[in-house]
């Protein structure tokens, strides 16, 4: 504590610490905010100062890392100070309001902080650097920062897309030039499986309580039922109005063939959205329906049903999609 000079990074950091201490003592939100502005400011100045000194100390000994092509020296300190500045703005709710904006703004702030010393002049005035090389570096620096920012933006853009179209996650990204799959172990299943499960449940609930003749009549006319079933199943799966954009890309279809003793009901979930195979893919679930063993009294709705329905597991036309062959989709 003795050797601290009044104008040094230690002072700055200590002032910051002092501000945060005050911050803890205060109750009023506005006052807290006011104090935290100073807290952040001195923290950023202090950290930048330390890093600058560090950089100067190592610059002579260490080999510098140059960004190839652009012939630009890579410096770590602006990135750290920039990150701190972004966090400060974020926590103060000033200009930056979301975590996403924080990341997007990070390279821009870092570039500004990295470029700032070039504009300094002895005294309180600023100047435009008059060395052509320095100017070229500045131009490159700013452009690179915007490019990084765009990359972050693109990451979030892809995340947004995947949130709107979660079934894409079940597909095969191997050919993509833009994204790489990092969860090879836990690839999620496509929503088509949920659609087929919901379809089975919906059809069961429609058939419940009908006599066997009625059941057969309903199934023979299933083509007429498909549009309303389609709506109902989508509402079950995606909510109404749908929570995700992919709801419009799914289509439900059903086919019924009358082959005694076991009639075949074919349920299809058709995906017409983006996929690794041309024209999307189709998931299928085959159900066998037969008359229930004859009971002595005609079965009331509550106890047994007049039919037996057994469904096989889902199959897919496209092998690339994960439709949960060996998985726990029982809980639905």
């Amino acid at each position: 504590m003795e050797g601290i000079k009044p104008f040094s990074w230690q002072t700055s950091l200590l002032t910051s610490l002092f501000c945060w201490f005050i911050y803890l003592l205060l109750d009023d939100l506005d006052a807290k905010r006011f104090v935290s502005v100073f807290g952040w400011f001195f923290l950023i100045v202090g950290v930048d100062w330390v890093l600058l000194l560090q950089e100067r100390a190592t610059a002579k000994t260490d080999k510098e890392f140059n960004i190839p092509i652009f012939d630009l020296k890579f410096r770590l300190s602006p990135w750290i100070s920039g990150a701190l500045t972004c966090l400060a703005f974020y926590s103060l709710d000033f200009l930056i309001y979301t975590f996403r904006d924080t990341l997007v703004a990070w390279p821009l702030f870092s570039a500004a902080i990295g470029a700032f010393p070039k504009f300094l002049k002895p005294g309180p005035t600023l100047k435009v650097p008059d060395d052509v090389g320095v100017r070229q570096d500045l131009v490159t620096l700013v452009l690179l920062a915007i490019l990084y920012s765009c990359w972050f933006q693109f990451t979030f853009f892809v995340q947004d897309l995947l949130q709107q179209y979660p079934s894409l996650l079940a597909d095969d990204f191997d050919r993509s030039q833009f994204v790489v799959r990092t969860n090879r172990q836990t690839i999620p299943t496509t929503n088509g499986v949920v659609i087929l499960d919901n379809a089975e449940a919906a059809i069961r609930s429609k058939l419940n309580g009908r006599s066997w003749v009625n059941v057969q009549r309903w199934l023979r006319n299933i083509d007429e039922q498909v549009p309303s079933l389609n709506q109902q199943i989508k509402a079950d799966t995606f909510g109404n109005p749908p929570r995700v954009g992919e709801a419009g890309l799914w289509q439900f279809d059903a086919n019924y063939t009358d082959v005694s003793p076991e009639d075949v009901l074919n349920l299809q979930a058709i995906w017409s959205g983006p996929s690794s195979k041309a024209n999307g893919y189709i998931l299928e679930k085959t159900c066998f329906i037969s008359q229930a063993p004859v009971q002595i009294t005609p079965a009331p709705a509550s106890s047994g049903q007049s039919y037996q329905m057994t469904c096989q597991s889902v199959t897919s036309i496209s092998e690339a999609v994960n439709f949960g062959r060996d998985e726990r989709w029982d809980e639905g």
Binding site: V158, Q159, F178
Partner: peptide, 20 residues
């Protein structure tokens, strides 16, 4: 960079990609 964000869908999957 890997971002772990859970989607809002029923599936509760965690994100599974990194921008290459």
């Amino acid at each position: 960079l890997t971002f772990h964000v859970s989607t809002r869908s029923q599936l509760h999957v965690s994100e599974c990609f990194a921008p290459s």
